[in-house]
Design a protein around this nucleic acid. Structure first.
Lengths: 237, 237
DNA sequence: AGGCAACGTTTCGTATACAATCCTTCAGCA
DNA sequence: TGCTGAAGGATTGTATACGAAACGTTGCCT
């Protein structure tokens, strides 16, 4: 009798490197908004693009569907997810529900080097905010999400970390769809305030700031029902 | 009549019925402990069992791996997950983090018919507790999980619902592995107390009860590192 | 001219085939 | 006897092939 030694290693299986590569590439493209919601992801096309067979592409798409970034419809194919306003609300409701808890846990476990890491992230974020251009904007989006992800990583809970991965990615999709302010993305200063509160060890204030922060992001959305609920129509206009 | 909170509605896309069937069958078998942690799930064997090709089995195993119920190792195959003590701790930490929030949300949205549904679940749970035998025990574990899942369903947040699906399933695995008390499973009365608190509209008390409840489950575990995989030592005794 | 139906094309769903990797076993040697 | 190493078998990784469903188009009928 032998035991599976897998249990102790990282939660992310990352079984086949081929699939993982495609999955990560597609996810990055979606999160950074290079792929618009509703875009069809044909298995053959993606396969040709990566010079692999449909098998691996299919696995990657299935994985992304599990993360809520693509939606696969039986006998119709896979599309970049097109979250409904209701879905968007639920995503942010979930974030309001979990992020304060993650923040509390992270704050109690944080080390000086990790605080430095957070500050470094903020610096990078601020630098990108100053720049112009699509690339800088994308990098800014990513950095802004990385702040929340790093907090989850610091909390030390792999499960919550994975969950936040999903929530942040889907948030990006929602912002891409419904965000109205051109400045968009998280208010940079709010991140800084949260770090400051953590350093002061003022957890209640940090949580309050986090909730405000999430509320601000959501407040920037225009979540009215667009008749484009049928994504096919929206695309073919 | 039977409630199947895990299989309720549209939240899970799960396009292909073939894969879905295998996935659900395997998941039930794992959660109900008919498949022991560490058991190898050979693609060919499972495929023959279901009379389908490896392709579908592979997809199902991959899906289960995303839920944390199966761990796939490159070039080695898939095994029923064998959660480490650390993983177990993180699972319950995550539940402590999210369940109070879910409970609060559910309590504000709950309808009389849903309260009836919860009470029905409690009755069933109590009935199973009285019975003897492995089957009753398994059904009891399942029913006890269904309580938490139903609460998540009532909260109306599909995302949190899916997350709780995963957490409850993995908890079952952990309890199966590390639970020591023969009575095991959730204290039944605690579920009843929570429902009562909800009916009184005493949310703070309900949350407190929920946290206690989770703590009690975790307290029943023996999470000491058992190094089973150094089998040489075990044999040389 | 417009709508409907049948056909062809494209894409997905599933099975099967081949290649790569790992585990087991058995032979050879110190 | 105990260890090393290579061959064989078994299992997974990936690609390809074939059947089925859906979409677009064309042509006919009203």
């Amino acid at each position: 009798m032998k035991f599976a030694p897998s249990a102790l290693q990282t939660a992310d299986d990352s079984a086949d490197t081929g699939t993982r590569q495609i999955r990560d590439a597609l996810r990055d493209a979606i999160v950074e908004r290079r792929l618009s919601p509703g875009t069809k992801l044909s298995e053959s096309d993606v396969g040709n693009l990566f010079n692999v067979s449909r098998t691996l592409v299919r696995a990657a798409l299935q994985a992304l569907s599990y993360e809520g970034l693509v939606s696969v419809e039986k006998n119709r194919g896979a599309f970049v997810a097109y979250p409904s306003p209701e879905e968007a609300r639920q995503i942010f409701a979930a974030r309001r529900l979990v992020e304060p808890g993650i923040l509390r846990e992270a704050a109690t476990r944080i080390t000086p080097s990790q605080i430095w890491q957070l500050r470094h992230l903020l610096l990078e974020e601020g630098r990108l905010m100053g720049e112009r251009g699509q690339t800088a904007r994308r990098a800014e989006i990513k950095a802004s999400g990385d702040f929340h992800l790093t907090l989850a990583a610091i909390s030390g809970n792999v499960i919550m970390q994975r969950f936040m991965d999903e929530l942040v990615a889907r948030s990006s999709l929602v912002i891409a769809l419904y965000g109205q302010s051109t400045i968009s993305s998280c208010g940079h200063s709010e991140h800084g305030n949260i770090v400051a509160a953590i350093e002061r060890n003022d957890l209640d204030e940090a949580c309050r700031l986090m909730l405000d922060h999430i509320a601000h992001i959501e407040a920037d959305l225009d979540l009215r029902e667009r008749r484009g609920f049928n994504l096919k129509e929206a695309l073919e206009l």
